[in-house]
Simulated scan of single mutants.
Amino acid sequence: MKFLHNIGRIEAFSDAVFAFAATLMVVNFDLDTDLTLSKTDATGFLSFAVSFFVLVALWWAHYNFFRRTKYMDNVLIALNALLLFVVLYYVFPLKSLVHSWMGEGVKTKEDLSNLFVMYGIGFSLIFFCFSGMYFRAYKKSKSSEKSLNLYFYARHFAIFVLVSLISIVLALFGFGIEFGLPGFFYALLGPLCYLHSKQFYKRYELN
């Protein structure tokens, strides 16, 4: 006898992992007991703030996936587990990247290149999971209207993966490292996602 998956438990477990990731950020946030604000303290607070709100954005994307579909199977559970695994480690290279913006932690171009590669790998894996989850739900959807919506987001997050992979290549070969080009490359996400949306809605004659 085949039992249906309990989506509520999967969401609850996922929320617990996101909460644990936030806890790890707080534990690793150092604040001097004398209440004086130094450059190091300001950098630590900024890296914590950026990491926290990125974590919230990822949680929001995860939350929206479960609002858009009620389908669940073992493939989706595996992709969700991989997503949560990467999220737990993703915040740490992100914090280091913020430190590099403030001139701390990164001493050479090679250090910065490695940091961009670490960041890019985490970024690409996270959105590969999102894209894969949406595509799996799209393939299993029985509603044509909902199916198109799921397909749109599968393609939407695939753009994130493509951009991050190109950024990784730039970092590996050192193109524009001194100017932070692999990081600025992510700015293309806005226009690319906009063009994809316009093309998708025109192709499928959606309002």
Rank of each mutant, 00 (worst) to 15 (best):
A187F: 09
K198E: 13
P182A: 08
L206V: 10
A61C: 12
Q199A: 15
G8Y: 00
W60E: 14
Y63V: 05
L24Q: 10
Y186C: 03
L172H: 00
Y63K: 09
K107H: 11
V17K: 03
L79T: 00
F184S: 07
F184A: 09
K70H: 12
T40D: 10
S147M: 10
F173R: 14
A187V: 08
Y134L: 13
A49F: 13
F173I: 15
G132N: 06
L125D: 01
M102S: 10
K146M: 11
F135A: 11
M102E: 09
D41T: 15
E145A: 13
C129H: 03
F123W: 12
G176T: 07
L206R: 11
P93D: 03
S14P: 03
A19W: 07
P93R: 02
E145D: 13
K198L: 14
H5K: 14
L162E: 06
S144I: 10
F152N: 06
G122L: 07
Y90C: 00
F130C: 06
S113H: 00
A42E: 09
D111P: 07
L195I: 14
K95C: 04
M72K: 03
F173Y: 14
N64L: 14
Y186Q: 11
H196V: 05
P191D: 07
M1H: 10
D15W: 02
Y153L: 11
S167T: 02
H62N: 11
D41L: 10
V117E: 04
F130R: 04
S197H: 11
V106R: 07
K139F: 03
I168L: 09
K140V: 06
L37I: 15
G120W: 05
L24K: 08
G174F: 03
V17F: 08
Y153Q: 04
K202N: 13
L83V: 04
A19S: 10
V86N: 08
A22G: 12
E178P: 01
S147A: 15
T43H: 06
R9V: 10
N149W: 08
F53Q: 07
N64Q: 15
E205A: 11
A49L: 13
W60Y: 15
G105S: 00
S167I: 01
I159F: 04
A187Y: 06
R68M: 14
F130S: 04
G103Q: 02
A22F: 14
N149E: 15
L37Q: 09
L115G: 05
H156A: 02
L162T: 12
I77Y: 04
V54Q: 10
I166R: 07
F123K: 01
